[in-house]
């Protein structure tokens, strides 16, 4: 593992901020274990993806410029979501392609930005960690992380070091769960068909827990699992790796 102590800014993501703060704390814990100093810039809201994917380039640029400002000066920007990390590192430079004032900054910002799992393994050289989780888990590869950023083996490598955890590969793990941001509410019937296929595949693995690296996909899958009466729990992979699994799983109630 690298010896210098880099300054890392956590891009929390709006879903983690609003719905599942424990993922943010898990990310901080993992980054600290990886020898980083972690900050959370206050002036962050959203990565701008809802606007970008809705065809609203103007608002997307405004928000993107604000994010780039807020994260000025850090060695790295780390994101516990492949989707948001993809937005920051792949699409920001694209947004400012024709904007000479911002193009270089956007590219520089993109170069410093990583998805959490990729950062831990590829940049910090983490090969394993000290965590335990009793259960059979399966893993869904979220689309953006997988196809935009190549996040595939990193979470599996880290999960392999978790004591008590058995990973059962999910057939069709690379197929979209049907979340797609606003897609799931704009085209609910199609989205339902997709997430239905996904949760059926998850059930068939016999796993008791499904993990993924994106809260959007997880909320979609968890919401379908609970709706269909499944007892399979859904968690962000960072929660398990950081040993922060005392909270109820996504969509799971408080014990009475």
């Amino acid at each position: 593992m690298s010896t210098t102590r880099p300054e890392v800014a956590l891009f929390v993501t709006c879903l983690v901020d609003l719905f599942r703060p424990v993922v943010g704390f898990a990310a901080v814990e993992l980054l600290e274990q990886a020898g980083c100093t972690v900050s959370v810039p206050e002036a962050q809201t959203c990565c701008g993806q809802p606007a970008f994917n809705s065809g609203d380039r103007v608002d997307a640029k405004t928000v993107a410029a604000q994010v780039i400002d807020a994260f000025e000066g850090f060695d790295y920007i780390v994101v516990p979501s492949g989707s948001c990390a993809g937005m920051l590192s792949k699409h920001y430079p694209e947004l400012f392609e024709d904007d000479p004032a911002m193009a270089d900054r956007a590219r520089d910002f993109a170069r410093r930005t990583y998805e959490l799992m990729a950062f831990l393994v590829d940049v910090r050289g983490m090969t394993g960690l000290d965590a335990a989780y009793n259960g059979n888990v399966t893993y869904h590869d979220s689309c953006s992380g997988l196809r935009e950023l190549g996040v595939k083996q990193q979470p599996r490598q880290l999960l392999a070091s978790v004591e008590g955890l058995t990973l059962i590969e999910l057939p069709g793990a690379e197929r979209c769960c049907g979340f797609g941001g606003t897609f799931c509410v704009k085209y609910p019937d199609i989205s339902n068909n997709m997430v239905g296929d996904k949760t059926t595949d998850i059930e068939k693995t016999g796993a008791d827990t499904v993990l993924a690296g994106d809260l959007g996909c997880l909320m979609n899958m968890a919401g379908k699992l609970t709706r269909t009466g499944s007892s399979i729990r859904a968690r962000h992979v960072a929660e398990v790796l950081a040993g922060m699994t005392d909270d109820p799983a996504i969509g799971e109630g408080q014990p009475e």
């Binding site: 901020d17 609003l18 900050s39 959370v40 509410v185 997430v195 239905g196 968890a222 609970t226 709706r227």
Partner: peptide, 27 residues
């Protein structure tokens, strides 16, 4: 649009930002 076919997981209660501020986390 969401809840027609699936449950909406409830938020944990406080935002990450609120909790980070409460812990005086680095900014």
């Amino acid at each position: 649009g969401w809840t027609r076919y699936r449950d909406l997981p409830a938020p944990q209660g406080q935002t990450f930002q609120q909790q980070w501020a409460a812990r005086n986390g680095r900014r």
